[in-house]
Write a protein that binds this DNA or RNA. Structure first.
Lengths: 240, 240
DNA sequence: AAGTGGTCTAGACCACAAA
DNA sequence: TTGTGGTCTAGACCACTTG
């Protein structure tokens, strides 16, 4: 009740105080929180202001609201994990290490059907296949294998990827609307082991990302990190 | 303009239409979107309604707003990844496989300082150490090593974990307010290899989760999945 | 039938930043 | 100084759902 009070707006204060009671366990799952008109009285404000705070809590998944019944603290079940996936040069710089990029190979070629699990196009369309290596502090950091749909990003065909990595370029170049990550552990294949200077069979963390715009798939990238040197970290709070 | 129209409320329609133009690239990064008063005219509604839609877009990270200047499409840089981490029995059932649980070991003992990287307590406090195995369709699915802070969850000391896994029990029992995941690849250790019936050294995906309530750390769990049989999948859209 | 939340209005005042 | 967004009000009507 006395906890949060600063340069916050009123709806933020209401949100914070209700959230605090839920997260502290004072209002456990299933508990009915005060009606809007009660909070309206309690805070001496209009219903819109209370409603704004409670609508936030619904989006955060902390409460659910039923007409005629009231608002109830949800039973936490599904945890929603939020993770920031950085652009690799940024990621390395954030670690305070020098970043270095090395192009391994680049090839323009028609789409083949065995590209299918990575990029979903029709046969024969032009694509760009790029493999490269990211280094941090002089050591191999990440091996990148990328396919780019040239129909979606024609400019990529005439861009020089020998100095700058394609990922950063694409980020600034192409609007994207959806993406999907697959994260798994694998034993290093021969090419990845070579590029990362690892013994073949070393456990590696593999992140595959497919990116779409409203028209088609733009790119697929497979990032292979030495498993013992890299980890994803995700912080989150109850339902957020 | 004609795209989205259904049982949606007006502010949802405005949000959807503006979002569509941003995601499609029609309004590229840096573009100034119409002022509130312009959208107010365009949709024939009040400013509150427009403001609600645009405030959503700010929280989604699609636009940023500056007083006196207007609202601008953001430059997409950091991708926010949202992942649903299920309770393991739920996860297995969602795959359509039979779920089975096997307790491997359970021990009540005082906290030692080498528990430190997993659980952050003061020496000597009572904890519960549980190792168990989750099976899906009769095959090993996940090896679990868990520490529970008994001061935070005293009820755990008198609960029977030989039938039901501690994770599900804790979820329904203890309100939590924050958590942190670490995801990495490792070569299977001896105990995990035994439990999962793998050759030692096989690449495994390890997910470590620390969970706190407002008072203290509640639990640490290390989940080891066979790397070739398991992957995390995360879908998301631009900035969401 | 009654009470809840969902949505919207037509104003208002203020803070802030650019001109 | 001016125009923008940030916030809030005091109503209103409606949909839904429970009793």
């Amino acid at each position: 009740m006395e906890s949060t009070a600063k340069g916050k707006s009123l709806h933020e204060r209401i949100l914070g105080e209700v959230e605090g009671r839920i997260l502290s366990g004072e209002w456990p799952p299933g508990h009915r929180i005060p009606f809007e008109h009660e909070l309206t009285e309690q805070y001496g404000c209009s219903r819109m202001t209370v409603n704004k705070a409670l609508s936030e809590l619904v989006k955060k998944g902390l409460i659910e609201r039923r007409r005629r019944s009231g608002s109830f603290v949800t039973h936490p079940q599904v945890q929603s994990l939020v993770m920031q996936i950085q652009d690799i040069p940024r990621e390395v710089q954030a670690l305070g290490l020098d970043y270095e990029y090395r192009l391994v190979s680049i090839e323009k070629r028609p789409y083949r059907k065995n590209d299918r699990p990575r990029l979903d196009l029709v046969e024969g369309e032009p694509i760009l296949a790029i493999t490269s290596c990211h280094l941090a502090g002089g050591l191999p950091f990440c091996f990148e294998e990328r396919l780019i749909n040239l129909a979606a990003v024609p400019l990529a065909a005439s861009t020089d990827f020998s100095i700058h990595p394609p990922g950063s370029w694409l980020l600034g170049q192409v609007p994207w609307s959806a993406a999907e990550h697959h994260i798994r552990a694998v034993s290093a294949g021969r090419r990845a082991a070579d590029a990362l200077d690892l013994a073949p069979g070393t456990a590696c963390l593999v992140i595959e990302r497919r990116t779409w715009n409203s028209e088609a798939q733009i790119t697929h990238v497979r990032l292979t990190y030495p498993g013992d040197r890299h980890q994803l970290v995700a912080q989150f709070s109850h339902g957020t």
